[in-house]
Design a binder for these strands. Structure first.
Lengths: 211, 211
DNA sequence: CTCTGTTTATGACAGGTGTCATGTGCGGCT
DNA sequence: AGCCGCACATGACACCTGTCATAAACAGAG
């Protein structure tokens, strides 16, 4: 369970952040089987991950995408600023294309789905630590095929406010726009995305990571 | 790492089903550390879980709720019929109350979130195998507080068809009802749930597990 | 058998929504 | 300077929705 003399000069110090105790623990156990990897800290939430990282200064932070408090990408962003020596990578269950883009912009070096094996994960951790990038090919293909958002900033903003099925008047109020303008933006988004109605537009934009 | 002579007469045979390879592998490794537990089969999808169960006849099936093909609860239902000697339990990331109810009705004996530790999970597997039930207290509380659905069968059905933002005419067609009737059901659901519009109704019903 | 609740339907009305034409002003690009 | 795209707005029109009144058929409870 502990790391006696096996913690040699080259051992890679890892931070594990995942809100699911079961998974985090299991992962820690599996990674501990690799001689050159040492899990030096674990966290169950975004803020905790950040705090643990600053306290233990790991070489690589393995972050789950969905965590309470702050998601993996925002933790990576903060880490980039506050602990530049630490490389970050994201592990995710349901990878939507938009997240990849956001993650890459945040300086994340690795992005993998939880469908990979622990063996693979260990390799990728080493790859990332060596300063290289690794993005799951399938996720990358999805991201490329989904392309860039055709929506303007305002259109995306209004679409986001429309996400929970609120009526136009409420969206208008929250966006400080006239109801007519809101309807125009919504209409533009719907036609740009080539869908039937605003709800489908919201779903598609979410899928593609455009909101 | 392996189980040489330790696989004694009393060893519990376990089936592990989870679409996330990383988690499944890690879990298998952790459970293998327990002397009295043996993972005899693994599956990455609903149908595969069923096939593996029939082939390996485990004592306990540990099923993830969300899997491609068929979810944990439907696998449990089939298992109850085709392999009654096998106890089933569900492990889930984001437990919504309705799933618990469905699961219990399907004869599932254990229902736990992935936030428990591996230690706990092992205990619960033993509990379940002994013929007892175990439901995570927090999940149970949620389920109780959310109560029973006030919606009639048809109302729930129509609400479900309305989930993806389809217009009334489409819902009517898919449900083989007149558009007017659909609007009546939607209106009834909205007023029963005390919400503003059908979209909020869909979300609330989903949260509570009523659809 | 009557009462009650569900399923199904219709018609009517107010109000919300989707679409289009049209207009103004701002900031970039050539 | 001139053009283009974006942000923002208004008005008009057809259509969709939410709500209500009303009603027939049927099934189960008492």
């Amino acid at each position: 369970m502990t790391e006696p003399a096996s913690m040699d000069v080259q051992s890679l110090r890892i931070l594990l952040a995942d809100d699911e105790h079961l998974i985090r623990g299991a992962l820690a156990a599996l990674l501990a089987l690799e001689d050159d990897l040492t899990v030096v800290a674990e966290a169950a939430s975004g803020p905790e991950a950040l705090a643990m990282a600053l306290a233990h200064r790991p070489d690589v932070a393995v972050l789950d995408l969905q965590m309470p408090g702050a998601d993996g990408v925002s933790v990576a962003t903060s880490l980039r600023r506050e602990l530049p020596s630490c490389q970050t990578m994201i592990v995710t269950s349901h990878g939507r294309p938009g997240h990849l883009k956001r993650a890459l912009e945040a300086g994340v070096r690795g992005f993998v789905p939880k469908t990979v094996s622990a063996q693979r994960l260990a390799e990728i951790i080493r790859t990332v630590h060596a300063g290289n990038r690794y993005v799951d090919p399938e996720l990358a293909a999805d991201a490329i095929s989904s392309g860039d958002s055709p929506l303007t900033a305002r259109e995306a903003e209004v679409l986001e406010l429309a996400a929970d099925g609120a009526p136009v008047s409420e969206i208008a109020e929250r966006a400080a726009l006239s109801p007519g303008t809101v309807r125009n933006y919504l209409s533009a988004a719907v036609s740009k995305l080539g869908v039937e109605n605003r709800h489908a537009a919201v779903r598609l934009a979410r899928e593609r990571g455009w909101v």
